[in-house]
Design a protein around this nucleic acid. Sequence first.
DNA 1: TCTGGGGTCCTAGGACCC
DNA 2: TCTGGGGTCCTAGGACCC
Length: 417
Amino acid sequence: MFALIDCNNFYVSCERIFNPLLEGVPVVVLSNNDGCIISRSNEAKALGLKMGEPVFKRKDLIAQQNVRVYSSNYALYGDISHRVMNTLRDFSPFIEIYSIDEAFIDLKGIRTDFTIYGQNIRKTIQKDIGMPIGIGIAPTKSLAKIANRIAKKRTGVFAIETENQRLWALANTPVEDIWGVGRRYAILLKKHGVNTALDFTNLSTDWIRRHMTVQGHRLKEELRGKSCIDLETIMPPKKSIATTRAFGKKLSDIEVIKESVSSHATTCAAKLRKQKSVARFVTIFIHTDPFSETQKYVLRSITVTLPVASNSDSIITKAAINGLKKVFIPNLLYKKAGVIVSEICPENAIQQNLFEHYDSNKLNSVSKVTDFLNAKYGKSTVKLAVQGNSRDWKVKQEKKSPAYTTRWDEIIEVRNL
DNA sequence: TCTGGGGTCCTAGGACCC
DNA sequence: TCTGGGGTCCTAGGACCC
């Protein structure tokens, strides 16, 4: 049996842990640049605020209903996520961290009644961390997802153990709420008279294969109770790593854009070092505002191949800047830039280049020292000169809560009133 | 004025190999 | 009249997830 643990309204719930005044009132958390609504409390959902909605379109409602608005605070959310995952490990050694706010665990060997066990997990996470969660329990991961959705509407825990429970759960799940059915498939399926998960399991395998590939087939089997998707307890290394940001304001000066691109490049290099990998491809892109009505949308990108795979700040950054120079067109107003590294392999298995020689030891020592200093004294304590000091490209974050758990100078204050 | 960021998997078709 | 069989690699595009 699998259990899917999912935090309720995760980012909003993180904000509430350190600010109890946010309980019971509408709260939303915004995406980077304070652009879109990406997390909503139940009260905010009830007001009709939608996931992914641009916040400026709803500012009247937000003001009128006194909705509390926060910029995203990933240092806080990442730390709370770790706490939740570590607590879950006490309940099962077999855990797959599926996303920042979700985990699957395997319940093999659990002798207690599953629902009672689930309630136990819920109470513990609530009491120890202050995070509300929902738990779905079922014989396959896809069914656990479905059970989780039902759990949230009820007492927080729901288990699919009998055939009747399975059929009931499927009949009460709209097809668009199935894990693996997105917008396109939902439209297609409804056109064929498939409205519930139960309808989906009654489709012919042949039809599903043809229209939804092998993944659709797997999904059907999972929903019928045959487990096809295993628990992945060890996280495979990433095959591509991206760092991309919209600018705080539109930019046309290549010197400023260079600062952002080199910062993204060093961030990618640091992420590579963290997973002990190197990359051979460095892709850089810039684009103008896709929503602009006055300027045509322009997207430019290029992929630079390194002679030898690397995770060094200076090598990745150099490649990214060279790429930027090639794709940059003057006199356009750019809105966003990004760096993506790919063709990733383990750092101890680098294919050397026959014609060019690198002293990689020297570069590795530099990286080790910068990683150490930046870990100890804070991000960007040491950086490349080309990253500059301009603030123009930095994201807008006007309503960020303190990094309560990860910075000494932002730690919560307790006063005796 | 104002619209996020970071990933994965699968398939079809073309180019190429022996 | 008439033209094999078996395979790999790469890319673009489409779908999905949080």
